[in-house]
Design a protein around this nucleic acid. Sequence first.
DNA 1: ACACCCATGTAACCTGTTACATGATTAG
DNA 2: CTAATCATGTAACAGGTTACATGGGTGT
Lengths: 182, 182
Amino acid sequence: MNTLAYGLLGLVARTPSSGYDLMLQLQPYWQAKHSQIYPLLAKLEQEGYMQFTRVHQTDRPDKKVYSITDKGEIALKMWLAEPTAEPVVRDELVLKAYCLQLTDEKAAHAMFRERIDHCREQAQMFEHIMKEMEQQTEGHPDHPDHPAFSDYILLSWGCRRMQEDMKWCEWVLELLQKRKKE
Amino acid sequence: MNTLAYGLLGLVARTPSSGYDLMLQLQPYWQAKHSQIYPLLAKLEQEGYMQFTRVHQTDRPDKKVYSITDKGEIALKMWLAEPTAEPVVRDELVLKAYCLQLTDEKAAHAMFRERIDHCREQAQMFEHIMKEMEQQTEGHPDHPDHPAFSDYILLSWGCRRMQEDMKWCEWVLELLQKRKKE
DNA sequence: ACACCCATGTAACCTGTTACATGATTAG
DNA sequence: CTAATCATGTAACAGGTTACATGGGTGT
């Protein structure tokens, strides 16, 4: 049982879903490809943490809809009580930033511009989902008992991260401007 | 040649260092254990990107001090011009946050408190190094031509990230307070 | 005496990515 | 007709962690 396994358990505990759907839901918060998810789901099912029902679809391929079992829910609750691992961040841009003196202004500028564009895109995506959610639920889901509460705090996390990353890049670009002027 | 390899190249390009030292320098920005670094350095040396000299020390074990070669510097500059990969973040706390409804107040509270403490510690570490740097260089290294400029922007990155993470956790804790009151 | 820091390395294992494979439906 | 989306899977490989292994010096 690794972190990804618990992440999947957490998702199916809320809403029974197919592997494909789980992959898409998880993507913004834990990068994992389908090739990692499908075998893991099979393993979790074999070991009794999940169960699945084959759902026939006419317009689309059939799918396996996984749902959590009692054993799965117990394991999930135990995981939640365990100490949390520290986050792992691996950002190539940070390593590149350390080598800024080896680049020309143009390349340095492009590097941070690209990241800013990427972050803006992602932030807008998060914001868009949040707005949709607020309309659907008719109000701000900022209360812990609101069914969409955890979705709300996760979206906020993603949005904040992107905005902070953007700010840092913009700050670096401003400092880099000084090179030209002086 | 993977990202870690370029990260190591970037470090030795600035200051020739031992594997042990590289591991420590890299830790805050790219988590890698010595067991990954040592074989990689050997490979980079064999392929001509780095060279090393064995340095004898009386009070401590001997060390291999790696420095960059011309081939290494060319490869490094080419990497800098290539498009940058998107950052990878894997944070167990985010997955746990999605399952908040399955936990009691105490566990939820502890989860975020622990993270806040961790972030504060890290942020203080970054701030401390920044202050030391400012004293050594006698002034703010916020100019791109300053030799400590890239260290400065990396430290700022680390500091900002920790502060933002803390803010998010505190925000979640505030929202969780509502559960009790109402 | 025991633990920690410095310093380097290997081996086994787990995690995650890329590529291979299939196939139906829908949108441009 | 071509590309994208939905849907599931396997195989090979790369990246990263944990454990094993060694050994001197320093601090408590």
